[in-house]
């Protein structure tokens, strides 16, 4: 997983703010690559929230953040080498 054969210049990064999520799962449904899934855990209001389960699949297209009605998830593209 760490040593991908094809050298990617970018990677997708997704952040989730679980406390804002109301569990509609629209991000999971409309993510084109299936990179996120709903967590088994609950937030303090009792909703399941999304998790960034398959980071390797994510292209950083940002659609999850665009669809999210609760501003609780955001995906973007990061240059590999930057940051962590």
């Amino acid at each position: 997983m760490a040593t991908a054969e094809k050298k990617k210049k970018f990677r997708g990064v997704v952040y989730v703010a679980p406390e804002r999520c109301k569990g509609c799962a629209i991000c999971v449904e409309f993510c084109p690559t299936g990179a996120i899934t709903m967590s088994d855990r609950f937030n303090s209001k009792g909703y399941h929230y999304p998790e960034f389960t398959y980071p390797d699949k994510c292209t950083g297209c940002g659609l999850c953040g665009m669809y999210c009605p609760d501003f609780a998830i955001y995906g973007f593209r990061e240059k590999i080498g930057e940051g962590a």
Binding site: M66, P69, D70
Partner: peptide, 13 residues
């Protein structure tokens, strides 16, 4: 936030 709109409501989008 969180806002008053229901889970899945299209307004936030």
């Amino acid at each position: 936030l969180p806002h008053v709109w229901c889970s899945g409501c299209g307004i936030g989008t």
